[in-house]
Amino acid sequence: MTPVAAAVLLGVLGLLVGSFLNVCIYRLPRDLSVAFPASHCPSCQRPLRWYHNVPVVSWIALGGRCGFCRERIHWRYPLVELLNAGLWAAHGLLFPWEPLLFVRLAFASALLVLFFTDLDCRILPNEVTVGGTVAGLIASALVFPPGFQSALIGVLLGGGVLWATGEAYERLRGVEGMGMGDVKMLAMIGAVLGWPLMLLTLVGSSIAGGLIGAILLAFKADARTTALPFGAFLAPAALAASLVGQPVLDWYLGFYR
């Protein structure tokens, strides 16, 4: 299969999976089952018909409203579907058609869920972070890159660095500086990408978080007490590391060879 054909196919599949991701984003932080009940309107609770549930198309056709009660449906629903389709298509262009591709597709979708749950609810569900860590270690043990040793170091180093940073901040400032959800999320990233790309993710997310924090300080008097959802910075940094991180690392390390 050519990269373009793979991108088109994965983009369509990504749209369909994106619809399920919306269910996860809404239900997991609320401790609700992602399987039961079937998709329904959160306002009137009526089960959706199949033609209400076609990714993106249904939202446009219904004018962004429920087909029963006409309550508004958030624009984030088609956005998540389109983002997941775009991410899957990008993987189809950049990765060969081999088992590692499917590991990275699942990883990209998991990061998308974590990005929005952290942004909306300041929650990084254990079902995704802990489950993703275990799945990443299993995949690495099956001789997928980055290999089990690198993945295990990534888990221990990733989780350990954030835990130590948060512990030190709390002792110095007397307030919690890093939630355990962030620690588990970086451990998951280390399990899937290995420790070098995990460190690249941490550097990238810290720079982005620092820039946003500086902007908030410039425009908000109470920015020092504003908690930033660090998972929302880790997710795009990890996606970038998954897609193009290895060439970036190779280019950087080339200066020392």
Rank of each mutant, 00 (worst) to 15 (best):
S58F: 03
G64H: 03
R70A: 14
F36A: 15
R49F: 10
L82Y: 03
S43G: 12
P42C: 04
G92A: 01
C41T: 00
P47C: 08
S33E: 13
P78V: 01
W75R: 13
C66V: 00
G92S: 06
R30V: 10
S39Q: 04
H40P: 08
R70D: 06
G63C: 06
N84E: 11
R70N: 12
G63R: 03
R49C: 14
W75Y: 09
S43D: 10
W59I: 08
A38C: 12
R46Y: 01
V56G: 05
G64M: 07
P42L: 02
A61F: 12
N53K: 00
A38F: 11
E81G: 06
W59C: 14
R30A: 15
N53A: 11
P78D: 02
I73G: 04
P29H: 07
E81N: 06
L82I: 13
L93Y: 00
I60E: 09
G92Q: 01
S58V: 08
F68P: 04
Y51D: 11
H91V: 15
L32E: 15
V34N: 05
W59M: 12
V54I: 13
A90V: 05
L87W: 00
A89C: 10
H74L: 11
L82Q: 05
L79V: 13
C41E: 00
V34A: 12
V80S: 01
A85F: 07
I60N: 09
R46D: 04
A35K: 13
G86C: 03
Y77M: 05
G92F: 06
L93G: 08
P29V: 14
P55G: 02
R46M: 11
H52F: 01
P55D: 03
N84I: 09
C44H: 09
P55H: 01
V54H: 04
W50Q: 11
A90N: 04
L79E: 02
P78G: 08
W50F: 14
S43F: 10
S58P: 06
L82D: 01
A61R: 09
A61T: 07
G67D: 02
L32S: 07
G67T: 02
I73V: 11
I73N: 00
A61P: 11
A90C: 10
W88S: 10
Y77K: 01
C66L: 00
P37W: 07
L62H: 10
L32Q: 13
E71S: 15
H91E: 10
H52S: 05
W75F: 14
S39R: 06
C44A: 05
A61C: 13
L62T: 04
P37M: 02
Y51K: 08
W75G: 15
A35H: 09
H91M: 12
W50T: 15
L87H: 02
D31P: 09
C44I: 06
S33A: 11
L32I: 14
L62R: 05
C66D: 02
V57P: 08
V57G: 00
V56R: 03
I60F: 08
